[in-house]
Amino acid sequence: MDSIINSLGTLIYATLIYTPPLVFAAMGSCFSESSGVVNIGIEGTMTIGAFTGATVAYFTGNAWVGFLCAGLAGAVFGVLHAVATVSLNADQTITGTAINFLAPGVALLISKALFNSSDTPALLDAKLPMLFNNVFDGNTVWSRFLRNVFNNYATSFLMFGLVILVWFIFYKTRFGLRLRAVGEHPRACDTLGINVQRTRYIAVIISDFLAGLGGACVTMAIMNQFRPISIVGQGFIAMAAVIFGKFRPQGALVACLLFGFCTGLKVVMGSNNVVSAQLISMIPYVVTVIVLILFVGRSRTPSASGKPYAKSR
């Protein structure tokens, strides 16, 4: 029984490690997708956020400053994406693809100029803090369980707050209502006096801000430095989670937790040699496809998704 509780604790712990980057990026994706702008560039913005967070934290020694700057660096690329897609009506997928090349290129370029290496130096004590260190002492099974579960960086707990906040914005504020309406029927919104372009600008910039934070979750909590392999598909997985969660923040959270759990499972199980680690690594992706077939099926994208909106023709 004790060992079951122990492994359960380890699994929850591992899930909480790997989920935050996905949740932050997925909440971002929720914003842009709901407003009708497809943003596949979040993979690239996560990379720039991952780099900026680690670099600023290294120089300032302050993790939270680094974390915030990661979001701001992401937002810069958000402005770029928004100008191209909202103002200039560029193809959203193409612009996103361009950003996926540009952002990692810029990150590595700056890294080489600053550190003469594509890796940033290790963050010794400028990592994000752990919130519940030394809270659960004692030596009973359950206190060990709790200590295990809560032995995580702040982002693992902040993400739940973020989801609640995003849910609140989406469903309880005027901005959220407008955001979703703009993604469904921009022309109707325009006639009602809602500024479609401004709403989309805000949505896209928020989305890349959050994606930047998501990137920083990787380099400032999971790892302790930026490396070229820091962001390998988390942005795409976050996008997948949003589609999976039917474009709702709460749904995306569940999808992210599933991914995080599978990744955690992969890491926890990876140490035994019974099943090939490669096959275990495949689990999150196979599970997603199966779950989609069984439970989700047709996910209804916002009607105006991917379509530029021109005010007058």
Binding site: L88, A90, D91, I94, T97, F101, L102, P104, G105, L109
Partner: peptide
């Protein structure tokens, strides 16, 4: 840094995306 190639290609694609303007 060889990454400049990524920046260049990314910029090309970006400008092609907005070139229809």
């Amino acid at each position: 840094p060889s990454e400049i190639v990524k920046v260049i290609t990314g910029t090309i694609v970006f400008f092609i995306a907005i070139s229809h303007v």
